[in-house]
Each structure stands twice: as C-alpha cells, then as structure tokens.
Simulated scan of single mutants.
Amino acid sequence: MDRLLFSMWRIWRNPPSRMKLIVMLAALALAIGLVLVERRVGWPDWMRVERTPRPRLPHL
C-alpha cells in the first residue's frame, strides 16, 4: 500500500508528458481489450498452451 501511495504522490507532483500519458493509456486499453477478448470469445486452439509435465530425474 505504501508503494502505491508513493507512486501516486510522485505522479501528482511530477505529471508525465502528454506523449507518455497517451502511450500508457494505449497500453492499458490494449491490455483491457485482450482480457475482454479472452473472456467473451476465447482463444483459438492454435494459441492455447498445453502444459507438459516436468520430466522427473532419477534419484541417485
């Protein structure tokens, strides 16, 4: 919680430039868009990652 308050205080005292703000908002919009696509539509099968079990090493 202290880190968040410190970050908010730092942004309040030293606001980012307009270009940096646009880039940050675009990244946030992209992340939210990806989450919405994943929740509503889902990913195609070719984009899914299948977990493979870790190989067990023999005990020596």
Rank of each mutant, 00 (worst) to 15 (best):
R13N: 02
I11L: 13
R10F: 02
V23D: 01
V23T: 05
W12N: 04
R48P: 00
M47A: 15
L60Q: 05
I32R: 07
M24G: 10
V41W: 13
P53F: 06
P58D: 08
G42Q: 02
P15S: 00
L25S: 10
S17V: 01
P44Q: 06
V37I: 14
M8K: 14
D2Q: 09
T52C: 02
A31H: 10
A31L: 15
E38R: 15
M19T: 12
K20S: 08
T52W: 03
A31F: 14
L5N: 09
W43D: 06
W12L: 13
G42M: 02
L28Q: 07
W46D: 07
V41M: 05
A29F: 05
R39D: 08
M47Y: 11
M8Y: 03
D2E: 12
V35F: 09
W43L: 15
A26Q: 05
L60K: 07
V49H: 08
V23H: 08
W43P: 00
G42C: 02
L25M: 11
L30T: 07
L36W: 07
V35Q: 11
D45V: 11
M19Y: 02
L34Q: 08
V23W: 15
P16L: 07
S7C: 07
M24H: 11
L5H: 10
G42K: 01
R54Q: 09
